[in-house]
Each structure stands twice: as C-alpha cells, then as structure tokens.
C-alpha cells in the first residue's frame, strides 16, 4: 500500500491519541496545569511550604514526595519480592506441566487445561473472601509468602499456557534425535529442550512480572502496611498507611501513576516480540 497524505495524517492522529494522555499525566504530576493561566492562580501548602499551583513551570515536588517521603523504593522492593516468589513457584509447577501438555497424551488433559483456563477467567472476588479468612487464621495476611501464593492465580495460567506455546515451537525431530541417541526423557529435557526454550522462559518471566506488578485487587485487600506493592500505592499513596478509598490529591495520583508506569513499560519493551503470545495465552505464534 502507498503512503498517502491521508494515511500519514491518520497515523499521526493515532500516535497523538496514544501520547496525549501519558504526557498530560506526567505534566499534571509535575504540576503543569494551564488552568490557573486563565482562571487565576491557585495555591496550596505542602507541609509548611507554600506551593504555587498550576502554571507552566514544572515543579517536581510531587515526584520528590512520592520517592523520598512516601517510600516508593519500598513499594518497588515489595512488588519485586512478591513477584519473585510467585513467578518462581509458577515456573516450578508450570514448566513440567507445559512440557507434558505438548509431548504426552494422558487422561484428564482436557479437564486440566480447562481448570488452568478457569484460574485465568476466575473473578478475583470469588476467591478473595476465602483467602481473606484463611490468611487471617494462618497469619499469612500482609506477608510476602501470602501475597506470592495468591498471585499464583494469575501467574500459573500465564506460565503454563505461554510455555506450552514455546515447547510446541520446538520441531519434533529434535526430540526424536535425542531419544534415538539413547538419552532418557529427563536428560533430553535438561540438556536439549530447556536450553532451547531459555528465551521463552525469560519472556514468560518478564510478562508474568508485568502482570503481577499491575494487579490491583489482591494487593488492595490482602496486603497491609508491611508488603504494600506498587499497584496499590498508585491509588492510596506509597506511604505505609492503610486507606481503602482515595486520599491523595490529583497531582500525587498522577505522579504515582507515572512512577508505576515507567518500570512496567521498560520491561514490556524488552519482550515486545512475545507480548501478543502472553495476552492471547499462547494462541498467537
């Protein structure tokens, strides 16, 4: 197709549609607001300090507040630890299962696939009440282990179904060559198959990490002040306090959103090629 003038215009419009809200978010986070230019200058107090609000001069106070006063780094660390526990466990159970799905026929395969899919389609509200009660009894509420376990609901389907696609991509001749040379199945798996799917495993890890990083509901109800992850901090602040509904002002909300967005975006760009696979649960190749 030719690149007509109309097409260039439409492409630029689409690009503008994508860029505009993000730029606005960052600008609002920097307290750039054109409102006061027209409607009179507003002001607010942050602590004891007078803050002129609005205008076109960037003011990084909200970013500084989120990072230094509100423990953004602690939230990042929490998210990282939770994701590591959860993704590690999912890889341990998911990779052998994905391999079996591709290479073996066994009774109950359809049921198991359906069950894994149902984890993906399950409304978090269906399980959050039991988790809430059981975690209270087992003292897992507001712990890394507890959060890591609950995120298995998200990560097990991602890992199993994504890895299944990567295993299916390996030509069957490779398996045959390994078995005719006398290697046992376990040896084949360890020496031949796993090295071939290492890029796939890395892509899966990053994808699962972004999904865990972005999840909001479990974070909102099953974490307390100790292990508050980033996704929850976006809404109620990174500070170590419990709130259920919003208490932040808009500038803080926007600055926090921008801070939560940057790491997720960077990681997603690393696995750009594989993202469609992740979202379609391994159906796109």
């Amino acid at each position: 197709m030719k690149l007509t003038k109309l097409r260039i215009f439409l492409l630029c419009f689409a690009a503008f549609w994508i860029i505009w809200p993000i730029t606005t978010m960052v600008m609002e986070g920097l307290r750039i607001d054109i409102g006061p230019l027209f409607a009179g200058r507003g002001s607010s107090f942050v602590g004891r300090f007078f803050q002129p609000q609005g205008g076109i001069k960037p003011n990084p106070i909200t970013f500084i507040k989120a990072i230094s006063f509100q423990n953004y780094h602690r939230a990042v660390l929490n998210s990282g630890i939770i994701a590591t526990i959860s993704i590690g466990l999912s890889l341990l159970v998911g990779i052998p299962a994905a391999y079996a799905f591709v290479r073996h026929k066994f009774k109950g395969k359809g049921i198991l696939t359906l069950l894994i899919l149902m984890l993906r389609t399950l409304s978090p509200f269906a399980v959050i009440v039991p988790f809430f009660i059981v975690y209270g009894q087992l003292q897992l509420f507001d712990t890394y282990i507890g959060m890591g376990l609950v995120y298995l609901i998200i990560n097990i389907p991602i890992v199993t179904l994504m890895m299944r696609g990567f295993f299916a991509d390996i030509p069957p001749q490779i398996y045959e060559a390994a078995s005719t040379s006398g290697a046992s199945e376990f040896q084949t798996l360890r020496r031949v198959v796993i090295p071939l799917v290492i890029p796939g495993i890395l892509a899966t890890i990053v994808f699962a990490f972004v999904a865990t990083w972005n999840e909001f509901l479990f974070a909102q109800f099953l974490s307390g002040v100790q292990v508050k992850p980033v996704s929850r901090g976006v809404w109620s602040g990174f500070a170590e306090a419990i709130e259920s509904f919003r208490v932040l002002d808009f500038d803080e909300l926007n600055a926090n959103s921008a801070l939560a967005l940057v790491p997720a975006l960077t990681l997603a760009f690393l696995i750009k090629k594989y993202v469609a696979r992740g979202f379609t649960l391994g159906t796109t190749r």
């Binding site: 994508i18 860029i19 972004v210 972005n214 999840e215 909001f216 959103s257 975006l265």
Partner: peptide
C-alpha cells in the same frame, strides 16, 4: 513503538489517565 506504549499500562493507571 508508539502504539506499543499503552500495552504495559496497568488497569488502575488506565483509569487514572
């Protein structure tokens, strides 16, 4: 690349945006 940007946005940030 531009059109890839929104894909990593979490639903809650999406709502904020």
């Amino acid at each position: 690349n531009i059109l890839f940007v929104p894909i990593a946005i979490s639903p809650i940030v999406m709502g904020v945006l």
